[in-house]
Design a binder for these strands. Structure first.
Lengths: 135, 135
DNA sequence: TTAGACCTTACAACTATGGCAAGGTCAAGC
DNA sequence: GCTTGACCTTGCCATAGTTGTAAGGTCTAA
């Protein structure tokens, strides 16, 4: 049966990863080289698409390609200790926290500046003044 | 007097932007081409350093190069309405908010997964299971 | 047989920043 | 005058992830 074979466009639709990125992931080694038809088209089966979905979900959570490679090898290792996965997740949460804090402090500083600016037709602007300050 | 002239290294120290990035900003047109000594060294005066500080403060608040170019032109325009600056700042705050929300939802989803995982020597792991789910 | 939708590769762009290499310049000390 | 070390110059490469484009081959339906 051919019913479980996808070409790259179908795999893209089924997984939510663009064909472009599937090729890219293959090139950088995140995915094994896909098998090919006689004419050179990549083909994917259900399991491949399953792996693509795994990758997409990991990306949606903000894991890097490198981290996803590690997650994939843990996924494939039937004997992994779940503590390893949990540790990776915890480290990633910590990184997310740092980024969130950075963005929040940018936001509060900018909010402070905005509240000082009357924002009308007059040219004097405390936002620009503070940006230009030597500090 | 030469006391108000900086070469690129001194301008970098005084502004907090690396010499590398100063050259880069010049190349992409964020900065006007610096004047040069006879031997080709870039030179900067107080006003240039002032502008560099403006750029650094804007970067610290997360503005992109394109946005900083707009801020700079408002800064130079003695007749700008402060409402324009305020609007840019508000839009940027909105973008920061979006990013913050994205990161927070990643974090809470991941936190949920982590709390489901016992994280010991056993291989069964709800985190990997959910990542692999078709959803 | 032809049109259109798909596939292939390869190259470049984008965000901002850092690193390295090969070479020129400047200032201090001998 | 010459050497040394710190600084400057340009240019190219790398990061991470994604998108776009170009030139060409393949498949399918009319």
């Amino acid at each position: 049966m051919q019913s479980d074979l996808y070409n790259i466009g179908q795999a893209a639709k089924a997984s939510g990863i663009s064909a472009k990125m599937i090729r890219h992931y293959e090139e950088v080694g995140l995915l094994p080289a896909a098998s090919r038809t006689f004419s050179g088209y990549r083909t994917y089966n259900h399991q491949d698409v399953h792996m693509l979905r795994f990758i997409r979900h990991s990306r949606d959570l903000g894991f890097s390609i490198k981290q996803i490679a590690d997650l994939l090898s843990l996924w494939r290792d039937r004997n992994r200790p779940s503590s390893k996965v949990k540790q990776m997740a915890l480290e990633h949460i910590e990184m997310l926290n740092q980024k969130i804090q950075e963005l929040i402090s940018m936001k509060s500083e900018l909010t402070r500046l905005v509240s000082c600016c009357h924002g009308d037709e007059r040219p004097d602007c405390p936002i620009l003044d503070e940006l230009a300050q030597d500090k």
